[in-house]
Computed example of a mutant assay.
Amino acid sequence: MTPALLTLATSLPTVAGVAAQSGREIIANNADPDRPFAVYSISKTILAILTLQLNEAGRLVIDNAARRYLSASQARYLSPEITIRQLMGHTSGLPDYGPLPEYHTAVRQGQRAWSFDEYMERTQATTLLFPPGDGWSYSNIGYMILKHIVETTADQPLAELSAERLFVPLEFSGSLVVKERADWRRVSIGRSDSLEGEVREIYDPGWVAHGLFAMTASDLLALFQALFSGRLLKSESLQQMCMLHRLPFIEGRPFQQPAYGLGLMADAQRQIFGHTGGGPGSTAAAYHKDGKTAVILTNDEDSLKAEKLGIALFDSTNSDHEV
């Protein structure tokens, strides 16, 4: 079978890449592929997998009201019409904290991350952007709520649950949940132009409200290969994960037909599935098509560049191809 990638040429400052079918790692500019990189929003894919596993086990039902699985103090913010499925697919109508100037100021200055209540109140989460199920809008708030549902249902913190259900069974060697600043010591991280200091010293991982995973290139590759080979979910669950809500064309993005499933970004036209993530000091892109997975992890903050590089690998027809 033709390897997904044999050679890699890129201007990204630090890159760890993996070719799925050759099993060969491509390292540029002294990157260390054995050190985990912060994958930011790819954490949503992991949360979606864990949620569907709990759904298969009968611990929750993704078409039930999300507030049913929260404490009373958390549930009061949610409309009874919002389902877990809608949280997973960004169709709940919940807003996001990304547009808030006070969020960016707090992050830049190294302030502590907000609590659940602060996130909900500052984003005015009780005022929905549209009726649940009647639209689409990317919401980190929705996945923050999903994290609490998963932890409450499983009666385990995210780090323990992901280790039990993913890291140990798949024999991951270097992945972790970044919970506090001290955890940055274990992570390959670059500098950030948006922070008033070094990422390791200033950035509270709690600003990734849905939980932050750091993964090696080979572990992230193994996760996607296991997901799409049916090792993590039953076929029906995987099919639901890949049921797509088509989105308008996004100028500058590499998708011919942008779409979103349950924790998966996608190009509906070319049937490429995966996710992009980016934040202070790191970006990540992991995409899968027809048995091949491309993983790009960087210490650069240009997530679009990593995403384009990852998607471009699937447009390659030659076995020895430079991107």
Score class of each variant (00 low, 15 high):
residue 3 P to R: 05
residue 4 A to Y: 15
residue 7 T to G: 05
residue 11 S to Q: 09
residue 16 A to L: 04
residue 18 V to G: 10
residue 25 E to A: 11
residue 32 D to L: 07
residue 34 D to E: 11
residue 35 R to K: 15
residue 37 F to Q: 02
residue 37 F to S: 09
residue 38 A to N: 02
residue 39 V to P: 04
residue 40 Y to M: 09
residue 40 Y to G: 12
residue 42 I to K: 13
residue 44 K to W: 08
residue 49 I to L: 01
residue 50 L to Y: 07
residue 63 D to L: 03
residue 64 N to P: 00
residue 65 A to W: 01
residue 68 R to E: 11
residue 71 S to D: 10
residue 72 A to M: 05
residue 75 A to F: 07
residue 76 R to C: 04
residue 77 Y to D: 02
residue 78 L to R: 12
residue 82 I to T: 04
residue 84 I to E: 00
residue 84 I to M: 03
residue 86 Q to L: 02
residue 86 Q to T: 05
residue 87 L to G: 07
residue 91 T to L: 05
residue 91 T to P: 07
residue 91 T to H: 03
residue 92 S to N: 13
residue 95 P to W: 08
residue 98 G to M: 15
residue 100 L to E: 07
residue 102 E to Q: 14
residue 102 E to C: 09
residue 108 R to V: 00
residue 110 G to T: 12
residue 111 Q to M: 05
residue 112 R to V: 06
residue 113 A to W: 01
residue 114 W to H: 02
residue 115 S to I: 10
residue 115 S to V: 03
residue 120 M to S: 06
residue 126 T to V: 12
residue 128 L to E: 10
residue 128 L to T: 03
residue 133 G to Q: 02
residue 140 N to H: 15
residue 142 G to V: 08
residue 142 G to M: 06
residue 143 Y to S: 13
residue 144 M to S: 04
residue 144 M to I: 05
residue 146 L to N: 12
residue 149 I to M: 03
residue 153 T to S: 14
residue 155 D to I: 04
residue 156 Q to V: 07
residue 166 L to Y: 03
residue 167 F to A: 14
residue 168 V to G: 06
residue 172 F to S: 00
residue 172 F to K: 03
residue 175 S to M: 07
residue 175 S to F: 11
residue 176 L to H: 01
residue 180 E to C: 04
residue 180 E to S: 13
residue 181 R to C: 04
residue 186 R to T: 02
residue 187 V to T: 00
residue 192 S to T: 07
residue 192 S to W: 05
residue 193 D to F: 01
residue 196 E to M: 13
residue 197 G to F: 03
residue 197 G to P: 02
residue 202 I to H: 01
residue 206 G to L: 05
residue 207 W to G: 12
residue 210 H to A: 14
residue 213 F to P: 00
residue 217 A to F: 05
residue 219 D to V: 01
residue 221 L to V: 02
residue 222 A to M: 14
residue 224 F to V: 07
residue 224 F to P: 08
residue 226 A to Y: 12
residue 227 L to I: 09
residue 229 S to G: 13
residue 230 G to S: 15
residue 235 S to K: 09
residue 235 S to D: 13
residue 237 S to Q: 10
residue 237 S to N: 03
residue 238 L to K: 00
residue 239 Q to T: 14
residue 239 Q to L: 08
residue 240 Q to M: 07
residue 242 C to L: 12
residue 242 C to D: 05
residue 244 L to A: 12
residue 246 R to E: 15
residue 249 F to S: 02
residue 251 E to P: 01
residue 253 R to F: 14
residue 253 R to V: 07
residue 257 Q to F: 07
residue 259 A to V: 09
residue 262 L to F: 13
residue 264 L to H: 11
residue 264 L to W: 11
residue 264 L to N: 14
residue 265 M to K: 06
residue 267 D to V: 14
residue 268 A to E: 13
residue 271 Q to L: 07
residue 275 H to L: 08
residue 276 T to G: 15
residue 278 G to D: 05
residue 280 P to G: 14
residue 281 G to N: 04
residue 285 A to C: 10
residue 285 A to T: 09
residue 286 A to M: 11
residue 288 H to N: 13
residue 289 K to T: 14
residue 290 D to Y: 05
residue 291 G to F: 15
residue 295 V to H: 11
residue 298 T to S: 13
residue 299 N to V: 00
residue 300 D to K: 05
residue 301 E to A: 06
residue 303 S to V: 04
residue 309 L to A: 11
residue 310 G to A: 15
residue 313 L to V: 14
residue 319 S to G: 10
residue 320 D to Q: 10
residue 322 E to P: 00
residue 322 E to V: 15
residue 322 E to Y: 08
